[in-house]
Computed example of a mutant assay.
Amino acid sequence: MTLPAYPDGLPLPLRDGYGLDKVNRIRSTAMDNGRAIQRWEFDDAPEFPSVSWIFTEPQSRLFNAWHTQVVKSGWFTVRLLTDMGFDDVTARFVESPKRAELLGKYLWKWTATLEIEFEQMLPNGWAELLPDYILNADIFDRAQNIEKP
Score class of each variant (00 low, 15 high):
residue 124 N to S: 13
residue 97 P to M: 02
residue 57 E to A: 05
residue 102 L to Y: 08
residue 99 R to I: 01
residue 72 K to A: 04
residue 76 F to M: 09
residue 62 L to S: 05
residue 10 L to Q: 08
residue 56 T to R: 07
residue 89 V to L: 14
residue 38 Q to C: 09
residue 96 S to R: 11
residue 60 S to K: 03
residue 46 P to R: 02
residue 9 G to Q: 11
residue 114 L to A: 00
residue 45 A to R: 00
residue 140 F to V: 15
residue 113 T to S: 04
residue 131 P to W: 03
residue 9 G to R: 06
residue 57 E to W: 03
residue 88 D to C: 02
residue 57 E to S: 09
residue 126 W to D: 05
residue 112 A to P: 08
residue 139 I to A: 12
residue 135 L to V: 06
residue 146 I to D: 14
residue 130 L to E: 09
residue 95 E to K: 14
residue 86 F to M: 07
residue 130 L to C: 04
residue 125 G to V: 14
residue 7 P to E: 03
residue 93 F to Q: 11
residue 89 V to M: 10
residue 77 T to Q: 11
residue 22 K to M: 04
residue 95 E to A: 15
residue 104 G to V: 10
residue 109 K to Y: 01
residue 128 E to D: 13
residue 105 K to A: 12
residue 132 D to C: 02
residue 41 E to N: 02
residue 54 I to V: 08
residue 119 E to W: 01
residue 61 R to H: 14
residue 40 W to R: 14
residue 20 L to E: 12
residue 56 T to N: 09
residue 69 Q to P: 05
residue 73 S to Q: 11
residue 86 F to R: 12
residue 30 A to R: 12
residue 94 V to L: 14
residue 144 Q to G: 14
residue 59 Q to I: 06
residue 84 M to E: 14
residue 30 A to H: 04
residue 53 W to V: 09
residue 109 K to H: 00
residue 76 F to H: 06
residue 68 T to E: 04
residue 135 L to D: 15
residue 48 F to S: 10
residue 124 N to I: 15
residue 67 H to M: 10
residue 72 K to N: 01
residue 78 V to R: 03
residue 4 P to W: 02
residue 96 S to K: 11
residue 68 T to H: 00
residue 16 D to R: 10
residue 68 T to D: 02
residue 89 V to E: 12
residue 103 L to C: 04
residue 36 A to M: 12
residue 109 K to E: 06
residue 88 D to K: 07
residue 4 P to E: 11
residue 24 N to S: 04
residue 77 T to K: 11
residue 104 G to D: 13
residue 69 Q to V: 12
residue 80 L to R: 04
residue 37 I to V: 12
residue 130 L to V: 14
residue 77 T to N: 14
residue 21 D to H: 11
residue 104 G to S: 08
residue 83 D to C: 03
residue 73 S to N: 08
residue 109 K to F: 01
residue 45 A to K: 00
residue 67 H to P: 05
residue 33 N to Q: 12
residue 35 R to Y: 00
residue 107 L to D: 10
residue 11 P to F: 03
residue 54 I to L: 01
residue 50 S to L: 01
residue 7 P to A: 02
residue 55 F to W: 11
residue 50 S to Q: 05
residue 41 E to S: 09
residue 116 I to K: 00
residue 37 I to S: 13
residue 113 T to E: 07
residue 107 L to M: 11
residue 12 L to K: 13
residue 93 F to M: 09
residue 110 W to A: 03
residue 129 L to D: 10
